[in-house]
Design a protein around this nucleic acid. Structure first.
Lengths: 249, 249
DNA sequence: CCAGAAGCGGAGGGCATCTCTGCGGTTCGA
DNA sequence: TCGAACCGCAGAGATGCCCTCCGCTTCTGG
């Protein structure tokens, strides 16, 4: 408390955070153009390292990785970390600012696919793949806990796209009519849950369950498409359970 | 360290824990018969309260609830809690000792169902329902972190039953042939993930996705069974994301 | 080449959480 | 009625995490 109060006569926290936020995020966006006062070369190199290390750490372990761990992976001291990104939240913003927007773009792309059904399936496949590859992204998609303005806006943008993907496939007669746009989101949630569980022993096995669900979604009930990926062996299941991760994560 | 060493000349921890374990768990099982030295009436009443409060707490919040929370719900002091159950782990054992065994029994029952396919579907439905109703049970099923001997044994018992359920439905020609026993476990994992997410706004909506998956599992591809439960509204999704729970839990 | 500004790293402060204990006072039951 | 058993709670002790402080190092403009 005391040390923080000592920082400025303003005393209040929120304004200070806002200043820092502008300084940090907008600077990042405009520095290449304005070049107001470029970072010293070593500092810039460390900033890059932190960004890279954090990206890897968030992808592998989710947004809960500690700042110490990020600094360690980046090969810098914790002090250096906090000089560049005065708050962990700021770093998350800088890193993921465009990632969710990219998911929306993917949806738009799939909306333009020639075959509406294949467009929907492609979206499910690729959107899930991205979230499986990056746990941080998944957490950002499914929780508002960390998002700031920009990220929240992208989230809002994506809901209607789900609905459009669904309706288009239904109009084409390929998708069962009782599916809703929100189901698309929850299907991704289901699949990432499997992926989180099996990641260490069979990282691709979630695709097996995507195929299963997709077969449940289509109206053309001719013949089931064969399941990709081998099923897990019983031993693999116990192996996964053995490594003590926080429950359910 | 010091206070614990002071407790006994034996000094070692493990033996002491084992003693307490016997005293606590086997006493519970045999007291009604042997009645060696019954608890005082108030003590017995509190023990019951703790068991009940803990059952409710574990069911709602998972095995990570704090001992303080359990004591609070039981309406007893934390000291009383620790007199009855010297370790949180012991309480978990006492409470869940038979729960996983019951899941195995359910599987055996479904194996005896007249229609193999309906037996499999019934198992998926009911086993998932139990885990949705009790988060603690789910965590115990999918992680060895908390289990002791008895619980581990029940877990081993259940794997072959999955396989039998699957083979029997396949032999009857109702289940697609490329499904494996382990898939049954992972399907439950998927569904409980949905349930964990939607629990607060639409606790039954996981059944929608069970229906979807079941339609993907069957070989009879005549017509999809209609999805039960209304789809979530877009607003419900954002509502769930808003309440800040630990990520992914 | 050098002075001093900018940056570096990591020990540790502060805080929150959680499990479990010590102990003064209370309640039960023979 | 008396003593053993029991109660509850304040808090010890452990851990984990975010973030700061500050002595030392590295860069860079003149």
């Amino acid at each position: 408390m005391t040390s923080r109060d000592r920082l400025g006569t303003s005393g209040r926290e929120a304004p200070r955070r806002a200043d820092v936020y502008d300084q940090c995020v907008t600077e990042q966006a405009t520095r290449a153009v304005a070049a107001k006062r470029p970072l010293r070369r070593d500092a810039e190199r460390n900033r890059r390292r932190i960004l890279e290390g954090a990206a890897a750490a968030f992808a592998e372990q989710g947004l809960d990785v500690t700042t110490d761990e990020i600094a360690r992976r980046a090969g810098v001291g914790i002090g250096t970390f906090y000089r560049r990104f005065p708050t962990k939240e700021l770093l998350i913003d800088a890193l993921f600012e465009d990632r969710i927007g990219k998911l929306a773009e993917l949806a738009e792309e799939c909306l333009r696919a020639e075959d509406p059904w294949l467009g929907l399936v492609a979206f499910l496949d690729q959107a899930t793949a991205r979230q499986v590859a990056d746990r941080g992204l998944k957490e950002l998609v499914f929780s508002t806990a960390h998002g700031r303005a920009r990220i929240a806006a992208d989230r809002d943008r994506i809901g209607p796209l789900f609905m459009a993907l669904v309706e288009r496939a239904q109009d084409a007669g390929a998708l069962r009519p009782d599916v809703a746009g929100t189901d698309v989101a929850l299907i991704q949630l289901m699949l990432t849950a499997v992926a989180d569980f099996t990641r260490d022993v069979a990282p691709e096995s979630w695709r097996r369950f995507l195929a299963l669900v997709v077969d449940g979604l289509r109206t053309d009930r001719a013949a089931p498409s064969p399941l990709p990926q081998p099923a897990l062996a019983p031993g693999q299941i116990t192996q996964v359970m053995a490594c003590d991760r926080p429950h359910g994560r």
